[in-house]
């Protein structure tokens, strides 16, 4: 793998995570349990789409002059490089907010490292995104604690959400040849190196939420290398890419 190819893969991983999660979160628009949550979810989705524009624009530049829209709207599922966690359906509000928290915790640690990237463009995107993500994490942590330590029903739902999502956490820390090249060039950290900090952060919040982390380190994989996405991604892309696919070449 050339280093340009590895760099592109890394950028797609960052941009596809935010694109797919942004899409999922935006599905809540107009349907959230309380008005303040509707606003917060839309705001989170908006931040994530904004970050997507930056990551995919850079990926497109590395990929010989494609636009962020080309990459978002004209790739098929196997070319997407997001982790599986972000493509699983929203489920109830509990699952959505738990997924957000599990991702935000990783995202904030990752961006914190990327601010020091040897590549100035990566560092600049990370600096901007990390301010937004700090707020996402604060909100999702508070909500996870509030619902975990709320009523019996909210506790049970949050525990069910954690049990369902936990097997999707490990993929965020998997390391392959792309990651090795990025780490060697000091562009990005080795994902495995983030795990201790993640476990400490997530453990603290989930303890406060009176929730129990499943005693199982099994991890579904296949998203960040595109080898095997879930069945859900195709449906998501069908919706997201429909206009671009139905009216090729039109300008919107």
């Amino acid at each position: 793998m050339t280093s340009d190819e590895a760099f592109k893969q890394f950028l797609l991983r960052m941009g596809d995570n935010t694109l797919i999660l942004g899409h999922r979160v935006s599905e809540w628009c107009g349907h959230a349990p309380v008005l303040e949550e509707d606003i917060a979810l839309a705001n989170t989705a908006l931040d994530l789409i904004g970050q997507t524009q930056m990551w995919l624009a850079l990926a497109g530049e590395v990929d010989g002059g494609k636009s962020a829209d080309d990459l978002a709207y004209l790739r098929d599922a196997w070319d997407f490089r997001n982790v599986l966690l972000v493509e699983v359906p929203n489920g109830d509000f509990g699952r959505t907010i738990m997924r957000q928290f599990l991702f935000d915790a990783w995202h904030s640690i990752m961006l914190g490292r990327l601010i020091k990237s040897s590549d100035d463009r990566v560092a600049a995107i990370a600096a901007k995104a990390s301010k937004e993500v700090a707020y996402h994490l604060e909100r999702s942590s508070d909500t996870v604690v509030g619902l975990g330590d709320g009523t019996d029903e909210s506790h049970a739902r949050m525990q069910a959400a954690l049990d369902y999502l936990w097997p999707y956490v490990g993929e965020m820390f998997a390391c392959d040849a792309v990651d090795e090249q990025m780490a060697a060039a000091a562009i990005a950290p080795d994902p495995a190196d983030l795990r201790d900090e993640y476990d400490a952060l997530v453990g603290k919040v989930l303890t406060e939420a009176t929730l129990t982390i499943p005693d199982n380190r099994f991890a579904h994989k296949g998203g960040r290398d595109g080898r095997m996405h879930t069945e859900h991604l195709g449906h998501l892309l069908t919706q997201m890419q429909w206009l671009q696919r139905a009216y090729p070449g039109a300008s919107w």
């Binding site: 349990p33 509000f93 509990g94 709320g150 009523t151």
Partner: peptide, 10 residues
């Protein structure tokens, strides 16, 4: 659907 969320947070 949001009743449990509002109840939980309260």
């Amino acid at each position: 659907d949001g009743q449990w969320v509002r109840d939980g947070l309260l």
